[in-house]
Structure formats: structure tokens, C-alpha cells
Nucleic acid binder design. Structure first.
Lengths: 242, 242
DNA sequence: TCAATAGTGTCTCTTAGACACTATCGT
DNA sequence: ACGATAGTGTCTAAGAGACACTATTGA
């Protein structure tokens, strides 16, 4: 790949390029998203608004889009290697008042126990906000409400047929804990027996041998057999097979 | 949305932003992708190589990323409203020798009958190339081989559980024709009876009343009930339910 | 009447949902 | 022994694959 400088016909006016993160976790039986406050200088767009964490690609620092997302996630949460997936790119002339911009939305799933929230250089505060349906209880900057909705759609769609919720728990976890996470995200009860048969059929978890003592009958602890990728189930969880 | 100019802290060095298209069709019992030849000036990267059609976002012309993709598709093929879906964004420091660049890959499905190929301003020739497995029979410019593989993965994955192949046919079409398209893309035979039961269960096609005369028994003609979105099937086509 | 393709009926197998049942803990 | 939670077994229903069967055309 030879580097041939050809300044001719490269566009001189280029869009702004950003990465935004929908960092989701389950705390207190609810799905939460991590939000940061935008700086309050009036020269900034949406001063003081809540927003998804994110920022511009640093051409000198970031080697790839994914690197950039990973860097921002680590800056905000200290979490190094979570589940991280690109959801979509959204670009238009008017989504940012500062000019034509494209953002690259990533979905991150992390166990809430792991997190140490850090107020980044560019964000006064970072806080977990509970999800209500498709939204959060505060208005968001830019088009971040629709970006959040995109990320939630993706999560809910994939949860119907993948093992994604396992990435919302610290290992090892029990099957009742995992089932509970499915129920929180899907916002509907899941049948215990069918749930377990499904999991075992995919053979993606293995018993550690230990069990969690809770005062009642202890539950067996499991860990993931493959830590990087989710497992795909042959059918969805939909009740009555619809 | 007030427009507040704030030149401070906007990045001065910005990535190149492009859109690339994997335009697929079925011709002569094979899946084909539309490729264009890159200009031959030696100052250009990959002069004379085959590439996916695409180009830079025009900040002054394109309102959104999707608009840009639609414009490029119409320029190359004359097709106005095909099935068009964003597959992924790929960005890194080294995928384009001219600098840090992000491309936005779109998958387009069109009926080959509809197409009038047009050599664009920036492309000496546009040609259909047959797909062999994950690849095409010529080397491609940039990282377009992996982009093509991404688009094919997406198509093949979705075809297992959606009605996407219907967008590769001109309406009205017969069920044997539709089945044949599934078989071409999946590269495996599909069982006739199960195939038809599946389609009818989703209730997304309707008989026109007419039928196609072929010399043997005529086949009933169908049209799509909903032209914009594919239908999702409850299970995949995988043989032996795996 | 025959070849060829379109279209249907029937059987089986797999798997999810429902739900009742058993198992194991602390008190 | 009992309450509570963990975990299993069994029945049923839905849908897919397999495949044989019927239907409709031209020659």
C-alpha cells in the first residue's frame, strides 16, 4: 500500500466525525444507561444537557473507530474489555449545529459492579439513568434520544435470540440471576424450564462446581465458555412461539 | 436548535468520509456485484483497480448519509428506490493511503432487469461480476474485499429468516422464481413444500390472479403486500432445524 | 398420453411453552 | 416440619423437513 500524496480532488470541507456510546447495565432490577453532562460554556451546543458519552475521532491517537470507542469507554468507566458492538452510523447536515456530522453509535454492555464512574475531562459528571421504555427521564442533547432508542432496539432484538445478557453479569453467575436479567431487559417473565433447556442446548456455559449461598437452596454458579462472542439460539423467546 | 458558532475545540484535522455500495443482483443463476473501475491517473490510489462504487460525502449536496448512498446508486444504475440497508461503518488510519478515513457501507438489492449501467464521471466502466463464495474474481481496491465480504455475510444471514430475496425480483414474480433466488443466494436446495408454507404463513405476498406462461403448467404470479420492508420468519431455513 | 413443472397433503421430528413435580437449603 | 428458592420431567402444540401425491399445461 504505497502512500501517494494526491491533494487534488480530496474534499476540502469534511464532515465532523464522532463516536457515541450507549453504555448499558442492569442495576436495582432496572436497565440503566450512562449519561454525561455537557460543558456549560454557552459557546458549546446544548450546554449543561445530558448526553451519551462520546466525542471526536482523534486522527493522531485513534487507530480505528473501534479503538476510539474503547478509549472513550475506558475513560468513562474504567472498564477495559466489555461487550462492544457497532449499532449504526448516523450522519446529516443538521444533527449538530456546528456542521455536517457523522456519529458512530456503539452499544456497550457491562456488569454494574465493575464500574468506577469517572468524570472525564470534557464531562462534568457521569451518572446512571434508568431506562423507561425507549427513553430516559431527562432530555438529551443532539439526536441522542433517537440514538439511545436505536441502541435499545438493537439490544432488545438480539436478546430474543442471543446470550447477550450474560455480558451484563459478573462471572460466575447463577441461572436465576441470568434469567432475571433477561426478564428485566425484555420486561416480561420468562419460563424457567424452557429457559434452562435453551441455555444447556447451546452448551455455552459451564458449571464452576461452586454455588451461591443465599439462605435458601444454593444456586449453582456458571461461567461462560467463550467470553468474546454471544451465542445465537435457533428460535426466539417469544411466548407462544409468535 | 440554535446555531452557535464555536470554532474553538473543533478538530482541525478531520477524517475523510465516504459511502461505498455493495449493489447485488441475481443474473444467470448467480449472485453478482456491481463494480466500477478506478481512474487510471497514477496520482490516484489503486489506479485502474476494480472497486465498489462509492465516494466522498458532499457536504453541500447530501442532506444525510442515506441520501448520499441513494444518489450514488441512482448515478450508477438508474434505479431509484431499491432495498437499501446500512451494513457497517469501517474507519481506520490506514485503509486509505490519502489519510484517516471512514467509509459507510450500504447493501443494495436490485432486480437485474431494471438496471441500465452508467459509467459515472469518476468511473471508466461499471460491470457486473459474479460472486464466488465470499469473493469476486478480480482483486479490489482499498479494503473493498472485506467490505464485500461484510455485505455478503449480512445478506446471507438475513436471507435465512427474512423475505429479502423478494427484492431481487421484478414484481410480479412466481413462487418457483422466488425459491430459485433463495437457492442461488444460499447455494443450497430449498424444500418446496416447507418453503411455500413459510411464505403463506407470513401473509406478505398476494396473488395477482394472473399467471406466467412457460410452456408447462403456468405458475401463479404474486406481488408484495408491503414494498418497503422485508418480513421476518419465526425460524430459519436451516435444514434439519439446526 | 406423456413429460415437465406447479402445487398439496401427510407424516415425523424437534423444540418451546406450560406446569406440576422433586430437591436442598435455613430456621 | 415448613417456607422458599433451585432445578427436573412430562405433556402438548407449532412448525419445518421429507416425500409422495395430485393438477395443469404443451406437444
Amino acid at each position: 500500500m504505497t502512500l501517494i500524496p494526491s491533494p487534488a480532488q480530496l474534499p476540502t470541507v469534511r464532515p465532523l466525525v464522532t463516536v457515541d456510546l450507549a453504555i448499558l447495565t442492569v442495576r436495582e432490577h432496572r436497565l440503566h444507561v450512562l449519561l454525561v453532562r455537557r460543558p456549560t460554556e454557552p459557546a458549546e451546543p446544548y450546554p449543561g444537557h445530558w448526553a451519551l458519552p462520546g466525542g471526536f475521532i482523534r486522527v493522531g491517537t485513534d487507530q480505528t473507530l473501534l479503538d476510539c470507542a474503547q478509549r472513550k469507554l475506558a475513560e468513562k468507566t474504567g472498564v477495559e474489555s466489555p461487550y462492544l458492538e457497532q449499532v449504526a452510523a448516523v450522519g446529516s447536515a443538521d444533527r449538530d449545529p456546528r456542521g455536517w456530522s457523522v456519529t458512530h453509535l456503539y452499544l456497550a454492555l457491562i456488569p454494574s459492579n465493575d464500574v468506577i464512574l469517572r468524570a472525564g475531562a470534557n464531562a462534568a459528571a457521569a451518572e446512571w439513568h434508568p431506562i423507561e421504555g425507549d427513553r430516559v427521564n431527562v432530555p438529551l442533547a443532539f439526536d441522542h434520544e433517537s440514538l439511545l432508542a436505536l441502541a435499545l432496539d438493537r439490544l432488545r432484538a438480539k436478546i430474543e435470540y442471543t446470550s447477550l445478557p450474560a455480558f451484563l453479569l459478573v462471572e460466575p453467575f447463577t441461572l436465576p440471576e441470568l434469567q432475571h436479567v433477561y426478564e428485566v431487559v425484555l420486561d416480561r417473565p420468562v419460563e424457567k424450564s424452557a429457559f434452562r433447556k435453551r441455555l444447556f442446548a447451546q452448551d455455552f456455559i459451564e458449571a464452576t462446581g461452586a454455588s451461591r449461598e443465599t439462605g435458601k437452596r444454593p444456586a449453582a454458579l456458571y461461567r461462560l465458555r467463550y467470553r468474546d462472542k454471544p451465542v445465537y439460539f435457533p428460535r426466539t423467546f417469544s411466548p407462544r412461539g409468535d
